[in-house]
């Protein structure tokens, strides 16, 4: 695996918000088919890190490489790179004025230049896969949060991405809807999708991820396999965090 070029690689990435040092010398690589989970207390920089990968956040210094190529800074090249990396947001961000079907076909039609008929056929297939094909003609506001997030995943998948970023995909959901979204993500992981997931869902991290990266105060404090991390955390910071979320 290590001989292969990583799909996503960050080298010495730094970022400040004014005086706040939100990312400190981040080094990270994600290989093809890997599911990497980013966890850490709020304000640790994990969401920011996730958003730098498709340049929704800029960085001050360091390098981000996508399949060995530097992340484009602007223009068509940036748009094309973003099209190749899917992103799922905490607040779903479905296009509010478009139907569910249009949400999924917009990218393929506008960006990939696919015909409307083909885009719709593929979109219906994806919506079926995530179990919301019956809602295709509705607008996002008519769907539950769980359904909306599954549509958001289908919208990303429609672009046939090389990798997918999930920025706290279940944090805005009512508890009873979390599982339906996680199931879709588990399925994706099984199919070999390269994924970076910022989450508080420890069961998901344990079951599905290949690697857990623990962040605090803008730094990567610890990383390891889920078993290593959850059962034998090395640092005091990680132990404290795990204790606090386990409710001790």
């Amino acid at each position: 695996m290590s001989t292969q070029t990583p799909v996503i690689e960050l080298r010495h990435v730094d970022k400040h918000y004014g005086d706040l040092h939100v990312l400190r010398d981040i080094n990270l690589s994600v290989h093809k088919g890997e599911v990497l989970v980013l966890i850490g207390p709020s304000g640790s920089g994990k969401s920011t890190l996730c958003r730098t990968i498709n340049r929704l956040e800029t960085i001050d210094s360091g390098e981000i490489l996508i399949e060995g190529e530097p992340l484009p800074q602007e223009g068509k090249a940036l748009a094309q790179m973003r099209a190749e990396i899917g992103m799922v947001f905490q607040s779903f961000n479905l296009f509010a004025h478009k139907t569910i079907l249009q949400n999924v076909t917009l990218g393929p039609i506008e960006v990939l230049g696919m015909s409307k008929a083909e885009a719709e056929a593929r979109a219906m297939e994806l919506l079926r896969r995530v179990g919301v094909d019956a809602q295709a003609a509705k607008v996002p506001a008519q769907l539950s949060g769980g359904q909306q997030q599954r549509v958001a995943i289908a919208r990303s998948l429609a672009m046939q991405p090389k990798a997918m970023l999930f920025d706290e995909p279940t944090s805005a959901l009512d508890p009873e809807m979390i599982n339906e979204v996680l199931e879709v993500m588990v399925e994706l992981a099984r199919e070999g999708m390269t994924m970076v997931v910022v989450t508080h869902e420890m069961n998901f991290a344990r079951r599905v991820s290949n690697r857990v990266v623990f962040m605090a105060d803008g730094q990567i404090v610890e990383e390891g396999t889920p078993t290593e991390f959850f059962d034998h955390p090395k640092t005091a910071r990680a132990k404290d965090f795990l204790d606090s979320i386990r409710g001790h």
Binding site: A79, Q80, M87, F89, N93, E110, R155, S156, M159
Partner: peptide
């Protein structure tokens, strides 16, 4: 218009103009 709408549009590869 919520900022997330713009971010989602950019994330699927739409240019800022589109």
């Amino acid at each position: 218009v919520p900022k997330g709408q713009t971010e989602a549009a950019l994330s699927i590869g739409l240019t800022p103009g589109k």
